[in-house]
């Protein structure tokens, strides 16, 4: 088992009253699995994804990564785990605007520093070529189309060969053609890179491409 949660709850303290974003969610993600999280707007899909991606801490419940309880890991240890094992793709591409496509992909690799600078450049270029961006390697995000930016974001998520890719509505801001293209790329990742992919989506067609769908309503998983 790659990732497992037990009764994960996330409550947000607001001035008026506490709001529960995720209620007692128990999820299992196996290696090489393609999982969709779907549900209506505001149902807690993204909140659950952030908890799975260790970007947020649960109010209650436990998270296990490769059967190790990581609920009480320090922020630095969680950051290291994200760097080594996870990749993120967001609805808005979220590329760093001052850096070229290549530099955006190289940043997490340089942070991990497993490879030499020369090797990092070669691997990053390979990732971009793989996603059909060979002509856009040295372009800034502002010089790319929405679909191209999202592909650069996917290349960046793949930079350190993660075991788990978490995508938060990656096609939510794209036209039909680009959306189709991104869906296909994500589906292929499972096959080509052997990683698990968890994707949050509104789109039932997108969800159908996945091995499994988790449906969430009002923060609670109602169907798996």
């Amino acid at each position: 088992m790659l990732l497992r949660t037990e009764n994960l709850t996330r409550t947000l303290e607001t001035e008026a009253m506490p709001v529960t974003l995720v209620k007692q969610a128990s999820v299992e993600i196996k290696e090489g699995e393609y999982v969709a999280i779907k549900g209506p707007s505001g149902s807690g899909k993204s909140s659950l994804l952030y908890l799975l991606g260790l970007l947020d801490r649960p109010t209650a419940g436990k998270i296990f990564y490769r059967d190790q309880d990581i609920s009480n890991f320090s922020n630095n240890k969680l950051a290291k785990l994200r760097l080594e094992e996870m990749g993120f793709v967001f609805q808005f591409h979220f590329l760093l605007p001052e850096f070229t496509s290549l530099e955006n992909v190289m940043i997490p690799m340089r942070k991990l520093a497993r490879l030499s600078d020369k090797e990092i450049k070669a691997v990053a270029t390979e990732r971009l070529v793989e996603l059909g961006l060979e002509d856009h390697i040295n372009k800034l995000p502002s010089q790319l189309s929405g679909g191209q930016r999202q592909r650069v974001a996917i290349a960046r998520a793949l930079a350190n060969n993660p075991k788990l890719i978490l995508a938060d509505e990656p096609t939510g801001n794209l036209d039909t053609q680009s959306s189709e293209n991104v869906q296909e790329i994500l589906q292929n990742l499972v096959k080509t890179h052997g990683c698990s992919v968890v994707v949050v989506t509104h789109d039932p067609e997108f969800a159908k491409r996945c091995d499994r769908t988790i449906t969430i309503v009002d923060g609670a998983i109602i169907k798996e």
């Binding site: 922020n75 950051a79 994200r82 996870m86 979220f94 760093l96 997490p108």
Partner: peptide
Amino acid sequence: HRDIAILKSMGFPSGD
């Protein structure tokens, strides 16, 4: 702020 969030999601600790 957005870039900081991205860097943190990539695995940059607060110290970085």
